[in-house]
Design a protein around this nucleic acid. Structure first.
Length: 275
DNA sequence: GTAAACCTGGCA
DNA sequence: TGCCAGGTTTAC
């Protein structure tokens, strides 16, 4: 599920609810996520004050007073929901509510993840191995720009879609937004990066920023069930030009949107608008 | 490069 | 019943 805009939406919804709160209790109901939860996880979190929140790539971070962070990745189906604790006595936890983090104001954060592709841990964000190989943030014009992409292109035969999906190249993009970005800069997903001009590479990085910015403004894409930290749906799914629109008319030229597999992932494009 | 693995749910 | 899904990692 969550790509950069969804993680940022969750972060913004939770930020005012968690900053200044202290973790009162941690309940691990199922620790076998993508990586098994460290047995010391509750101990590392309980009693800690939340100073702030941050996002790196598709990871959400709760920065703690001791310099470490509670780091969460949502995989495909993960969610983090804030709610009042003990709203009803005996209320059964949901089948997929794997971790519950209680705060000191009688609220709690519930990590719900049916597919269990998510992961979480407590670590120092500056040295966390998870972040070691992650590429630049797309909004960082200084490092993520046409010159950077063009430089990569000189030594690869990879498609532009494959390159943009690669978290080592640029952080936070996934299948939905790469499809939308390639529509915005009018390139087909199978185009080779090496064949793009410097100007086209500039356009790609600018398209990344404009699509992501607009997606964040619309609070992300709720494809089937994405919700932010307080249960609100996003609205960017109604703005998708190509993603999951195979057979529908391109809103720009009316041509039927096509679907192909690139790198094993469904890719959608307009055969007239994108070349 | 591509396929399959991890896991569950939804849909045709 | 079979296929697909917002991600990531590992193996041919």
């Amino acid at each position: 599920m969550p790509e950069l805009p969804e993680v940022e939406t969750i972060r913004r919804s939770l930020h005012p609810l968690v900053v200044g709160r202290r973790v009162a209790a941690v309940e691990v109901r199922r620790g076998d996520l993508r990586r098994p939860l460290d047995e010391g996880f509750p101990r590392q979190l309980v009693g800690r004050l939340v100073l702030s929140t941050a996002r790196r790539a598709k990871y959400l971070l709760f920065e703690l007073e001791n310099g470490r962070s509670w780091i969460v990745h949502f995989g495909m189906s993960g969610r983090l929901l804030h709610r009042r604790a003990n709203t009803r006595v005996g209320e059964a936890a949901g089948k997929h509510d794997h971790v519950v983090v209680g705060l000191d104001d009688n609220t709690e954060l519930v990590f719900r993840d049916p597919r269990r592709f998510g992961l979480m841990l407590v670590d120092d964000a500056r040295s966390c191995p998870l972040f070691a190989g992650i590429g630049p943030e797309p909004f960082d014009r200084g490092t993520f720009n046409g010159a950077y992409l063009k430089g990569l292109g000189r030594r690869t035969r990879r498609s532009i879609k494959d390159v943009l999906m690669d978290q080592r190249v640029v952080a936070g993009l996934g299948n939905i937004y790469v499809n939308e970005i390639l529509f915005a800069c009018r390139l087909r997903p199978r185009r080779r990066l090496a064949g793009l001009t410097r100007s086209q590479c500039d356009q790609v990085t600018e398209a990344c920023r404009s699509v992501l910015r607009e997606a964040i403004e619309h609070k992300g894409s709720s494809i089937s069930d994405f919700l932010d930290g307080i249960g609100r749906r996003g609205g960017y799914q109604f703005k998708h030009e190509v993603y999951d629109r195979a057979g529908d008319a391109c809103r720009r030229c009316g041509t039927s949107i096509k679907s192909v597999l690139v790198g094993g992932r469904s890719s959608f494009y307009c055969p007239v608008c994108q070349r």
